[in-house]
């Protein structure tokens, strides 16, 4: 029943810097299934964004990608920019944290949304506006006609993000990659955007990749979750398995360090169980497991031997020396 639509194998992303090579992503393999919402969780610098920028050929000039990312039988990493342009914005679309930089400042919203249809679906200049209006109305964006006449700077942050999502959905893509789509938004506006993404998941066949550091957002939307640390996947599981039975000490640490509104974890007098230390410098990675210096359950061999990512029970994959890691 699970039909893969995007498969990454041995994906690596490296940047050449004056201080040497920085490996942002190392040997990453994963699949995205049709209609699925896959969450990618990790801290700043864990490689979660670079993974998808690499897949879409959007790396900075000093970055190189290795391995394969297969979509519809072709390796995206081998395609020319011209070929990629027929996929990007059409079959695979991406939305970013900062919607203002993703929009053209001097074009009215209606025109820039219409341009997507003209470029990818060959619609005429007269036919495009109606299709745009239909979609905006379907996404329940209030005052659609008025909003489409506006320039990006005239819209609020939440409205811009909704317009970005609308733009990403115009061609009914196979995959929508949402990179921290609600991080810059206020909590009430975040709830509106998450509601929109939730509706999208229910009513369309689009697969969603949700890159975020917010485990609350993941809990509401994702079917499966992948946890990244220092450029590698450390754990992957179905959403319930991950939240109720986390195996990797990093995943556990993350879940435990979150202050919560519910239950008594967040008692005013109590302390949060923080993960000590900081993520490693990607230029100076520790030998063995990258998480070992911060790990509560560290053993001697963790410092010398990097644990391989192995398949565990069910859908779980885990990179930890502790058997079952409990």
């Amino acid at each position: 029943m699970a039909e893969p639509i995007l498969t990454a194998e041995g994906l690596g992303v490296a940047f050449e810097t004056p201080d040497g090579t920085v490996r942002a992503v190392t040997d990453l393999s994963f699949t995205l299934n049709k209609g699925e919402c896959l969450g990618i969780v990790g801290e700043s610098g864990s490689g979660k964004s670079q993974t998808f920028l690499a897949a879409l050929g959007l790396l900075a000039d000093n970055g190189t990608a290795s391995g394969t990312v297969t979509f519809q039988g072709q390796n995206l990493l081998d395609l020319t920019q011209q070929k990629l342009n027929t996929i990007r914005g059409d079959r695979i679309t991406m939305i970013f944290q900062d919607a203002l930089t993703g929009l053209t400042p001097h074009m009215r919203m209606g025109d820039q949304l219409g341009e997507v249809l003209i470029a990818h679906q060959g619609l005429t200049k007269t036919a495009a506006p109606q299709r745009v209006l239909d979609l905006i109305t379907r996404l329940r964006i209030p005052d659609p006609e008025k909003r489409l006449r506006m320039y990006p700077h005239e819209l609020s942050g939440g409205m811009r993000q909704r317009m970005m999502i609308a733009m990403a959905l115009l061609c009914e893509p196979d995959i929508l990659i949402a990179d921290e789509p609600t991080t810059a938004l206020d909590v009430t506006i975040q709830a509106q955007v998450l509601h929109l993404l939730g509706g999208l998941k229910k009513h369309t066949k689009t697969s969603i990749i949700l890159v975020t550091h917010d485990l609350g957002v993941v809990a509401g939307l994702c079917d499966r979750v992948m946890v990244m640390y220092a450029g590698r996947m450390v754990e992957q599981a179905l959403v319930n398995e991950l939240f109720y039975d986390p195996k990797h000490p990093y995943t556990r640490g993350l879940l435990a360090s979150m202050p919560r509104l519910t239950d008594d974890v967040g008692d005013k007098t109590g302390r949060l169980s923080a993960i000590p230390g900081q993520p490693p410098n990607l230029q100076d990675m520790p030998g063995g497991c990258a998480f070992a210096p911060r790990c509560a359950a560290v053993q001697a061999r963790c410092h010398t031997e990097r644990p391989p990512l192995t398949q565990r029970d069910g859908m779980r994959r885990l990179a930890c020396h502790l058997e079952g890691a409990s």
């Binding site: 209030p142 509106q192 609350g216 957002v217 809990a219 509401g220 319930n240 509104l261």
Partner: peptide, 27 residues
């Protein structure tokens, strides 16, 4: 009430069981 409601809960069952309308509009 709306603000508290809007905070995503890092617990899939609780988060998906959340009832009630989402606060619409911008400030």
């Amino acid at each position: 009430i709306n603000l508290i409601q809007a905070v995503p809960i890092p617990d899939p069952v609780k988060e998906r069981a959340k009832q009630g309308p989402v606060l619409m509009g911008d400030p």
